[in-house]
Design a protein around this nucleic acid. Structure first.
Lengths: 221, 221
DNA sequence: CTATCATTCAATTGTTCGCTTGAATGTTCT
DNA sequence: AGAACATTCAAGCGAACAATTGAATGATAG
């Protein structure tokens, strides 16, 4: 009974779910969605120790979610399957729809204002083409440099205030960051709206934008 | 740091993933996808003890995946969000694409034959309308009685042999069961093909069919 | 009101998980 | 070959989890 094919399959499905069941691993996957990275880079970004990070990555690999290969003395990990992003986004969707605490946290991020609906990627692409929006990339500078939406301005929450005078008050502002889990864009939108500007979040982040096959600017080092 | 909004959100997302990280709970969700049920019914179907089943259900409820309400002295559980089915199916998809062991188990279920592509629900609906298929419902009789695809014949793996002479050898056979996790339809297709019949699986199962808004026959008790 | 039934709670045990620490492996550079 | 570096392994600790058992709760029927 415990080795019936059905149970064996369920064990494997459960293995994937278990891989997503620790916040640290969700952070790692979010990072990997930005692009391949080495262990130390991931440890820096996530605040994990290197050894701990390595263990989490191996668990993700056992679950088939990431692959690794050596490059010189570094081991580079990358997302094995773009569908993993869909899975993570579905996790977020279910959490937002069914867990009261999530709604509460998101509301707190927007300082009690009710956040506007996000901008779809289709809409942003259209409005980028006609030049009617300002796009803000709220990710750390190194991630912006490795890839970003063409025309996007890189900034951080801390630097937003300084950027305000330079923004065209007539254009709507669209903020994005790493992906659905990124909170910077929530906070940026809240801050901008507090200053009377019209701002919305992009639905999804850069990984999803790239996944759609849309243009991305890459800074060749 | 440990209570930053970002971490708090990730904890919640991880909570949902953790809810899916035990085979027993995946079984429960698969059952609940067939329709609402009481604790004892679920325990029977899954082979869990009642107490154990109750605990798993409470964990699923904490994760927002199911809701419960009393009906007389029974507590009825049901799926809270149809998107949960999408999540489970994505879990299966990732497992099939990235875990060698899964592919291996599925191949064994088909007795080494290479299984044909499943039939999409659109295609089945069209061919049902023109009457060019025989549909087999491989689920237990009680689930068939509570709802099934109109025109489907209910049978079990054990009874398949007896049914063979009654099948129209000119029509293609489409087998379905509970959903993407159900193995009966894999086995039925393998058995039918071994007998020289043309048979394929339906993509997804009854819950997905119903989710599409397609007609379902309900046996009023 | 009491008996009965379905479900939940509480206490227990063995197991796994997440993280830390320190040593071991494997690769590159000189 | 040896030094320096990135990653992995191994052992240990506390916490959380899965399953069992037996008692407690809550609703209904007589």
């Amino acid at each position: 009974m415990s080795t019936s094919p059905k149970m064996a399959l369920l064990e494997e499905y459960a293995l994937i779910a278990r891989a997503l069941s620790a916040p640290a691993r969700l952070m790692l996957l979010e990072q990997l969605a930005q692009g391949p990275r080495g262990v130390e880079g991931l440890a820096d970004k996530t605040g994990l120790t290197v050894a701990n990070c390595s263990q989490h990555l191996q668990l993700l690999r056992r679950a088939g979610l990431v692959t690794s290969h050596r490059e010189g003395k570094a081991v580079i990990y990358e997302l094995a399957d773009a569908k993993t992003l869909d899975l993570m986004d579905l996790l977020r969707l279910l959490a937002e729809r069914n867990l009261a605490r999530v709604e509460q946290i998101l509301r707190a991020l927007s300082d009690g204002q009710d956040a506007p609906e996000p901008v779809s990627r289709d809409e942003l692409a259209a409005r980028l083409a006609e030049g009617s929006v300002t796009v803000l990339d709220m990710r750390p500078a190194d991630e912006y440099e490795s890839a970003h939406i063409p025309g996007a301005i890189n900034t951080t929450l801390a630097d937003l205030e300084r950027l305000l005078p330079a923004l065209d008050a007539n254009k709507e502002i669209v903020a994005y960051c790493r992906g659905p889990y990124c909170v910077y864009s929530h906070q940026a939108v809240a801050a901008l709206r507090r200053h009377g500007l019209s701002a919305r979040r992009l639905e999804g982040g850069l990984p999803e934008w790239r996944e759609d096959g849309r243009p991305v600017l890459i800074d060749v080092g």
